[in-house]
């Protein structure tokens, strides 16, 4: 049954997942190429100097990209379910509704995680030969909260999407904006290091909000 759910989610999202990977790998690849080119022109020592003295992390233009992709993945995955209340079909399957909903969200979280991991892997591979391991670690740790924001944005967008009433959707949207703001409070690299495990746990726990929307859908709430 879980295989069937995965098939359904795959059919909805396969082209968008390809696009996510192209965008993530394309934009991080572009930043890596730009850095390598700058090193060719100005020398590696100049880039090291900029990174150490100005606390630059080269890839800061990626900051909001995972969050945006998380939101769009939730829309691509769940809008077809909400179109003409197709979700009724999914929840009518002879399978626990909690399990069905969790499987759908798990699919989204896993596919996003794979995309983000590929992006981190590409950055690691591209940075490792040209800058010190400590600086690679510094760049990757700084980007981690952005990826966690992407996963959290996916779950919160799913919460908004499945919510059956517009009034509550607006409220959910406001709460989502506030929660996601937490991920972008500081521009200082690695400022989230100590807080990241708690932030990740909070982000993943937002999946329980999606279940609240499902329960409201089952109860027949409407505007």
């Amino acid at each position: 049954m879980l295989k069937s759910i995965a098939l359904k989610e795959w059919l909805k999202t396969r082209w968008f997942l390809l696009l996510i990977n192209v965008i993530m790998l394309g934009s991080s690849g572009f930043l890596m190429l730009r850095m390598h080119r700058a090193m060719d022109i100005k020398g590696a020592d100049h880039i090291w100097q900029v990174m150490l003295l100005r606390d630059a992390i080269i890839v800061d233009s990626l900051a909001t990209l995972p969050m945006l992709l998380g939101v769009v993945l939730a829309l691509v995955q769940l809008m077809p379910e909400m179109h003409r209340k197709c979700l009724k079909l999914t929840l009518h399957l002879p399978c626990s509704r909690l399990k069905t909903t969790s499987a759908m969200l798990f699919y989204g979280v896993i596919t996003l995680t794979i995309s983000f991991a590929l992006c981190l892997g590409l950055m690691h591979v591209a940075l490792r030969p040209v800058i010190a391991p400590e600086m690679v670690r510094h760049v990757l740790l700084t980007t981690l909260p952005w990826f966690v924001a992407g996963l959290t944005a996916y779950l919160l967008a799913a919460w908004i999407c499945i919510e059956p009433t517009w009034k509550r959707r607006v409220l959910n949207l406001a709460l989502t904006a506030m929660l996601l703001r937490v991920f972008f409070l500081s521009d200082t690299p690695e400022s989230y290091n100590g807080f990241l495990p708690a932030l990740t746990a909070m982000g993943l726990l937002t999946c329980s909000l999606v279940w609240l929307s499902v329960l409201r859908f089952i109860d027949g709430h409407q505007d």
């Binding site: 069937s4 098939l7 399957l93």
Partner: peptide, 30 residues
């Protein structure tokens, strides 16, 4: 028990993103 209840939603709603074969493959294991 939902195995024994066939539900047709108003407007013959089904998963629009599937084709005839895919939708059969999707439902059969349930």
């Amino acid at each position: 028990m939902r195995r024994q209840i066939g539900l047709l939603i108003e407007g013959h709603v089904q998963y629009q993103f599937m084709n005839i074969e895919q939708i059969e493959h999707f439902y059969a294991p349930f």
